[in-house]
Computed example of a mutant assay.
Amino acid sequence: MIEVGALRALRAVAALGTLARAAEELGFTASAVSQQIKRLERQVGVPVLAPAGRGVVLTPAGQAIAGSAPEVFQALERCAEAARSVSAGAPRGTLRVVAFSTAIRGLLAPVVPRLASRCPQLRVELTEQDPDEALHSVGAGTADLALVHDADGLLPAPLPPSLVRRRVHTDVGDVVMSRAHPLARLDAPLDEAALAGHAWVTSPPGTVCHQWFRRLFAQARAEPDVRHLVDDFATQLSLVVAGQVVALIPRLARPPLGEDLIARPLRRPPKREVHAVWRRSAEASPAIRAVLAELGLAASPGEAISPADRPKRAIPTPS
């Protein structure tokens, strides 16, 4: 019979392309993963990997096995969740959550203490991952729950049938400035005309927030005056305090502004939707239900989730 560990190792190699990267994701040595693959080959009687340059590729037999792996993992997970549900549905054990950094700051960090108090037998482990990596981790079974965003307000990419997605938050960008800055005296939401001529600190090119920033000036005749490119939002705010520059900061990423800074809304603010993603086979998980319920109660700076969008006691249907 095929061992589950060997099957998981093959699937990781199929997704990542090398034994070393698969080993890193699974928390093993490359030698241990290689041994699992060899054990699998002995169990099925045919090779499942073939060398390809510096990496490896799956043989047709390996592809057939990897293609069937999700059904096996989902069946095993349903067995485990059925056992947990019988035990009064109490959240327990370890829940591995992956999320982008500002979701950890603005959504997860506030709920972890409440979870520890209400679910003392549940251990929540947080790991920072970009959305693409987080989706892979949940699909591969190395994480149980992910928080991802829709990458600049675009429609979210289709999920495989094995995953479920639920919107938990809408993140919005505001302009942050010193209270002594001229923009701080304006009460109305800021538009392109009001923003023209001011100096900025913004996130580097290639980031979602830089795309947000460029969109603010998409119709402007002149290039915006960008003085500083800084990835860390707390560092951006340290430059804003001096009063010479302003910054576009997502609300999830915004620490308390203190007395020296103020945030002003935009007339057409950039937005991104934040979704929770989990495996369909784990939808009976008391631990996932507990985290989703807490996320429904979480309020990030400047925006609370409406009651209609809060997860219910039962796992919601996928969006």
Rank of each mutant, 00 (worst) to 15 (best):
R167P: 03
R215H: 01
W278H: 13
A88C: 11
G89V: 00
R167K: 14
P224Q: 13
A75Y: 10
L252R: 08
P286K: 03
R21H: 15
S306M: 03
L10G: 05
A180H: 13
L190E: 01
V274R: 08
T317Q: 10
V13K: 10
A282R: 12
D174M: 02
V112Y: 06
A199K: 11
R185H: 15
G243I: 10
D225L: 15
E77L: 14
A20M: 04
F28I: 01
L107T: 10
R214S: 10
A253E: 02
L10Y: 07
W212D: 04
I2E: 06
G197Y: 05
P182T: 06
E81I: 08
S300A: 15
E303Q: 14
A247I: 01
R215D: 00
A23F: 02
A222L: 11
A220F: 10
A134H: 09
L40K: 08
Q35M: 07
V138W: 14
L40H: 08
F73V: 11
F100Q: 09
I315E: 07
A64S: 14
D187R: 15
G139M: 04
L7R: 06
V48D: 01
T170N: 09
A90F: 05
A180I: 04
R227A: 11
T94M: 05
A75K: 05
V240P: 12
E125K: 06
R215W: 00
A61S: 13
V112E: 09
V56R: 06
